[in-house]
Design a protein around this nucleic acid. Structure first.
Lengths: 339, 339
DNA sequence: CGCCTATACGAAATCGGCTTCGTGTCAATA
DNA sequence: TATTGACACGAAGCCGATTTCGTATAGGCG
């Protein structure tokens, strides 16, 4: 086993000092021509690479970014991560991922693990539990320590930092508008239990669109579904009890489940029921019929988040200015709506 | 902005030496009762945490694991990652993820970025390009440096290290057997272009099952599909040209695409065409009809990989013993097959 | 021949924490 | 009273690389 070699090894081998080796490898003018060449040759021979950890300690810069997300299996978060990783890598940064699993405690633990020097900054989306508890002290502590933080998608106004979101309210509005313009009159909303910021914004857009188009809003047409997969009893009963000709779903899974339930009950899509879901993932593309979806452009979101973070990390000036970048969601029309 | 405080700060504040502070915080017997209490109080007050980087440098242990996967958007890799992250986190390790994007060069660059002290060991699945080129020098260099490496799923015999795989050949065999037992006679195989180790093993199982059950093997019934999404011309033509009553797909996407094409052509599933796909992901669960799938148990795979790696990382003994763990794939029966 | 300066390199501090080895003080004991 | 030892703490080296500052040697010049 080849041991990892250090400046010290090279120095000893050539009987020069460590500083000379260090300078020679940086091609410093200070070092004589042939000494430099000898040192560089040996370094190459041994395939010398400086130790990242030592450099991190010296520079107080790790070139690592910490990403904390509620879930990695969800397509949206995956695409955001992809965007982050791509941009970060181009800039020479590595990405450390922690999954909070929608748990407040895990989120806190993960942040603490990383906040002690392991990373230069955080990119994160809040866990559901954190949003419920409304407790953001772990975030505040981190920002107070001067560690840059970028929140995306699941954000909060209580923490002052850079943010990236989509225009949820408007996107929902436009989706509903599109349904109305295609002739639909009774439009349902399938949403999560309401602590998630994004869901409530989407609901706002939904209601505003109905009002603007003089359609009555019926609280009965709003179905709150649990996070986890379950028997689809609840939604089946909902289909039986209420009549509606279109549905907006706050995520892809809900949309697919709505579609399956409708199909099982012999409802024709999109003629009898049009469906639009948030998140334009593989499910939407590959279901049959394929799903019209609100694309959140996770990749771009991730790239922008990474860009904002790295900008902050690399600027030594401490002017505290924060911005919120809003990404325009776009509707991808497919077979589940009439157009 | 609160500056990050160090042992030095505490030492100066209490007018003791750094070593005293260090020992006091570790509750060393060496330090007097009240000195200890004073130091611990101040440390708590300032919320002191030791700097991970400094500890890493000292211990030559980062408590970071490097994970390199070809793609994060694919469900299988996501679940493996989930398993790794979970186990690693429990053991106090962080996970640095790099995506090779199926590219040899990126894989090499990523490894080099991480191999200089940033991580204690690697877990990875080879990129398609690496498997094609059959060039594993970057892996060998890493293992020669004594950095533990665990390969999963996409492995190679050319590198000596720990490995985790599923019984691909057998799983394919069993899937085909199940199709045959349900009365199917002409079974097609949708596979990737053949450099990927796993695909060829699955093909082996497919052929062996046909032979064992005295069904003729028809090379025409094997369709090689490209990685990327494309117009589905190729498979549509395939459906028109050849007749078959079942298909085994080496991944989920191929299975869903096969199903969509069949549906568009009015073929009834599973009566006229039964489908089994590898990877039991969301697509399989939520398609309609739902897909019978070979579950690869990515989560367990990830957990086991992480366990093997951490075991190696933490054992100081250098007895070089490597093992290959085989995970039993299981078939999850759903609506796309008859049972 | 003596002085000055440029050249080429080395010593040492630093990053933050850990750890080994001293050492000064005080009390107990011979 | 002198010796021993326990106790409580400090000095310093180390991990690996960078960087500032200092200095020996050489040559050039008056």
């Amino acid at each position: 086993m080849k041991k990892k070699i250090t400046l010290k090894h090279i120095a000893k081998e050539l009987d020069v000092s460590i500083s000379t080796v260090s300078k020679a490898l940086k091609n410093s003018e200070e070092i004589g021509r042939d000494t430099k060449e000898k040192i560089q040759a040996i370094a190459k021979l041994y395939n010398y690479r400086p130790n990242n950890i030592a450099i991190s300690l010296k520079n107080k810069r790790t070139k690592n970014i910490g990403v904390i997300i509620p879930d990695i299996v969800h397509h949206f978060f995956t695409t955001v991560f992809r965007g982050i990783e791509k941009y970060a890598n181009e800039k020479g940064y590595n990405v450390i991922v922690c999954v909070s699993d929608e748990s407040f405690d895990k989120e806190v633990i993960n942040m603490e693990m990383l906040a002690n020097g392991s990373i230069d900054g955080f990119i994160m989306a809040l866990s559901a539990e954190t949003q419920m508890k409304n407790d953001f002290n772990h975030l505040k502590e981190v920002t107070e320590q001067g560690i840059p933080l970028v929140l995306f998608d699941r954000i909060t106004d209580d923490v002052i930092c850079d943010k990236v979101i989509i225009n949820d309210e408007e996107a929902a509005y436009n989706a509903v508008k599109k349904l109305i313009e295609s002739g639909k009159k009774r439009i349902a909303l399938f949403t999560t239990e309401n602590y998630l910021g994004v869901s409530s914004k989407r609901a706002d857009g939904y209601f505003r669109a109905l009002k603007d188009h003089k359609l009555e809003t019926d609280e009965n047409l709003v179905l709150e579904l649990p996070f986890q997969f379950e028997k689809e009893d609840k939604s089946e009963a909902f289909f039986e009890r209420y009549s509606f000709d279109a549905v907006l779903c706050v995520n892809e899974i809900f949309a697919i489940r709505a579609m399956r339930t409708a199909q099982r009950m012999g409802i024709k899509i999109p003629q009898e029921l049009a469906i639009i879901g948030f998140t334009d993932g593989i499910l939407s593309k590959l279901s049959s019929p394929s799903l019209t979806a609100v694309a959140q452009h996770g990749n771009r979101m991730g790239e922008i988040a990474a860009q904002m973070l790295i900008e902050k990390v690399e600027s030594d000036q401490e002017r505290e200015s924060f911005r919120t970048e809003i990404i325009e969601a776009t509707i991808i029309e497919r077979e589940s709506t009439i157009h």
